[in-house]
């Protein structure tokens, strides 16, 4: 199949970027979206041009490295009815038609400055984790499974939240560029576990404080995040975070600044 790509090209954070049109030919429907970009890059290198930068690592949909806006949707999620929500690397060219025009842009948010082309700096998410996404319980040898009991519904909900791979699609999709779905999944997956209780109050106030410091927007409960999340993380986590935050503020927890 032959495609027309309109790709965001930006040499560095300091320079202005623009959409540049490329033609790619002989794309196999079995290729992944990233393999199609590899084909484009080989072509660009042969032509003596600068290849398009994009982040990727496992190409198995589990690491959270890849992620671009495809036709205005994060990872292309929501464009195809017959396609489950997943990451860019797990989107295959069979979802597109011969002759399609595809717009490819980086995640856009103040907190995610463009490094080059489609690659953005997502270390703001790492700093949110650093501010509270940890437990102080000693880890190491796994304890006897029955020594600490966890209710089935709590362990299920915690596991669902823990599937977040931190790709940043929620921020990219949010009309407010809020990282609320990311932060809430981190707050909830530890907050529902017994091991996460000692820091529970401090965790939520510090992580929200850090999220605001990083320049993310506020949540308006629109739901574009959940509809774009490759792991389908639910909006209920946001409600749980809000509940935890109110409890923490009442208990006197304050962000350390």
């Amino acid at each position: 199949m032959n495609l027309k790509l309109r790709v965001w090209r930006q040499r560095s954070a300091a320079e202005k970027g623009k959409m540049v049109t490329y033609q790619v030919t002989d794309v196999s429907p079995d290729m992944s979206f990233l393999e199609m970009l590899d084909v484009l890059n080989e072509q660009l290198i042969l032509d003596g041009e600068d290849p398009v930068s994009f982040d990727h690592d496992c190409r198995e949909g589990i690491c959270g490295s890849c992620g671009v806006m495809i036709n205005g949707r994060a990872h292309g999620n929501g464009l195809f009815d017959d396609h489950p929500q997943t990451t860019t690397c797990q989107l295959h060219m069979r979802s597109f038609k011969d002759g399609d025009t595809i717009d490819i842009e980086p995640w856009r948010a103040t907190a995610f400055p463009v490094i080059k082309d489609l690659a953005v700096d997502r270390s703001a998410l790492d700093r949110i984790i650093q501010s509270g996404g940890y437990i102080s319980a000693p880890t190491g040898t796994a304890p006897e499974a029955h020594s600490i009991l966890v209710a089935k519904k709590d362990s299920d909900a915690a596991f669902d939240a823990a599937t977040c791979i931190g790709c940043g699609a929620c921020v990219a999709a949010c009309p407010n560029a809020s990282s609320m779905l990311f932060t809430s999944s981190k707050v909830v997956h530890l907050g529902l576990m017994p091991q996460g209780q000692p820091e529970r109050n401090d965790r939520v106030v510090n992580m929200i404080h850090q999220q605001d410091l990083e320049g993310f927007g506020g949540c308006t409960n629109i739901g574009e995040c959940s509809a774009s999340c490759p792991k389908g993380i639910s909006m209920e986590n946001i409600s749980r975070l809000n509940h935890d935050l109110l409890g923490a503020l009442r208990a006197g927890a304050r962000p350390k600044s």
Binding site: A109, G215, G217, A227
Partner: peptide, 13 residues
């Protein structure tokens, strides 16, 4: 939080 808008944008939710 988002001074630079997307060129293409599609909302579903």
């Amino acid at each position: 939080a988002r001074p630079q808008q997307y060129v293409a944008r599609k909302q579903v939710a």
